[in-house]
């Protein structure tokens, strides 16, 4: 699940994610790539972190980065992790490449008290324009051609929010970014990258 995730440079969503992470908390980063985000959170938020990664080269990079990593396939769930064993479970730019997006969202909230997920917003106006022109969009946040993309479950900001509300997932906070800058108006149209902080909704009495 190395979807261009954490290729050695700090991506715009990293700062947004770090802003929500409490000092000295525990973080599980799913599809952690070379461990750049965990390294960043370790340095800036003093977290205890672990990554999950399937790719051999990325696991090796994590070792070089001094980051804890467990090699495994996210599609097989998080059975190696206890319920509520992390403060945060992060899925950064990987949700759209998961075969079973629903299961992983559920697993994130089982293992973590809160989840953070980032994904490219397919509703971004440039993407819409490309589709209107009759082409699949290729951009900074969607860097693949239709024939080589690992992305199988692209969605829009509106889709994701409906998905959450239908499954009793409580959105704690949302940041929508374009070229690293926050977007406030018309996020589903003007935002290229969505960053969500969510938790389980409190049970009805």
């Amino acid at each position: 699940m190395n979807n261009g995730n954490g290729m050695g440079r700090h991506r715009p969503d990293f700062a947004a994610i770090a802003g929500w992470i409490k000092l000295e908390s525990s973080v599980l980063d799913l599809g952690c790539g070379d461990g750049t985000l965990l390294r960043y959170l370790k340095d800036t938020r003093r977290i205890t972190g672990y990554g999950v990664e399937i790719d051999d080269a990325s696991v090796l990079a994590c070792v070089k980065n001094g980051v804890n990593v467990v090699q495994g396939d996210l599609e097989r769930g998080l059975s190696g992790f206890e319920d509520n064993s992390f403060d945060y479970v992060v899925l950064s730019q990987t949700l759209q490449a998961m075969k079973n997006s629903e299961v992983i969202m559920r697993e994130m909230l089982r293992v973590g008290r809160e989840g953070i997920v980032t994904f490219p917003n397919f509703g971004y106006w440039k993407n819409r324009l490309e589709v209107l022109r009759g082409r699949m969009p290729v951009s900074e946040n969607l860097p693949y051609e239709w024939f080589d993309t690992p992305n199988v479950h692209l969605c829009t900001v509106a889709d994701f929010e409906r998905f959450c509300s239908e499954r009793n997932i409580r959105v704690v906070e949302r940041k929508v970014l374009t070229r690293g800058r926050p977007v406030s108006a018309l996020p589903n149209l003007l935002g290229a990258l969505a960053v969500y902080h969510f938790g389980a909704a409190p049970r009805a009495q």
Binding site: Y50, V59, V70, Q71, G72, G80, E82, S85
Partner: peptide, 18 residues
Amino acid sequence: REIVKALLDNRCRVTYAE
């Protein structure tokens, strides 16, 4: 993976490669 899980439960620093 059983070993890794037990180590994770104790928050040990661990790298696991398959």
